[in-house]
Amino acid sequence: MIVEHTVREQTLLISLLAAHSAAILLWVAGTASRRKALVTASVWTFAAAFALNGVLIVDRWLEAGRAPFKTLYETLLFYPWCVGVATLILLALHRLRVLIPFSSAACIAGLAYAMAKPDVEIVNLPPALQSAWFVPHVVTYFIAYGALFLSFVLAVLAIARPAWRSEETGKGFEEHAHGAVMFGFTALTLGVVMGAVWGKEAWGDYWTWDPKENWALVSWLAYLVYLHVRMVRGWTGRRAMAVCASSFAAVVFTYLGMSLLPTASESLHVYQQP
């Protein structure tokens, strides 16, 4: 009996939603009751969900015979994994357990969106996407998106709790938000450059003022504005964090808002809605 891939994928998706929900509940319960064990359990649940998400991606990769980053649905399975990577890195480096409920909520949002808009089938990769740049370009970008999501969460936390300092490291949310931006911005730069080089190989131009490219530039410029603003006297703290948090809007729009643009119909990057 063949276990159908679609059934397997649905099962994995539902398990993932359950795991992330459990991570949130454990964190809330642990924080409210001040029980460290529950928060630790929440972290491990999150890590398990991340591993399961990895299984989901590998399964689809094997089923498709290509990297599963072609359609909106496929990236919606990948985005939570990237949020997971960024979260686990920050957990390992700075013990920022406070990120768990936010990251899990973002994962749930992405996975629920994926479940609401599933692909009808695994589509073939068109010739333009059959390139060595496909995987590094997309992976770099989504890692950037994951890190920048965390910078957004941390910036909001920095605005809400400017005085908070980590017991272990003595750092506040602002420093962590800045760290996430540095990581995300570096990945964004590498991603946009890889995209440009790939564009040159595939379509003859490294920059064509295509809407997705333009919004990638807008996101990049938004974080560049943040990086410069932060160095101006009087603009650290809440003001810089507000710029940091609002820059994430450009990322979200770049990822999901392209089909709203009147110029998108000619774009090569816009995810076609099935």
């Binding site: 919004w215 530039l217 410029l221 643009l261 009147p262 110029t263």
Partner: peptide
């Protein structure tokens, strides 16, 4: 940034 965004909103 603003000009680039405008260039995507207007055909």
């Amino acid at each position: 940034l603003f000009a680039t965004a405008l260039g995507t909103v207007i055909v």
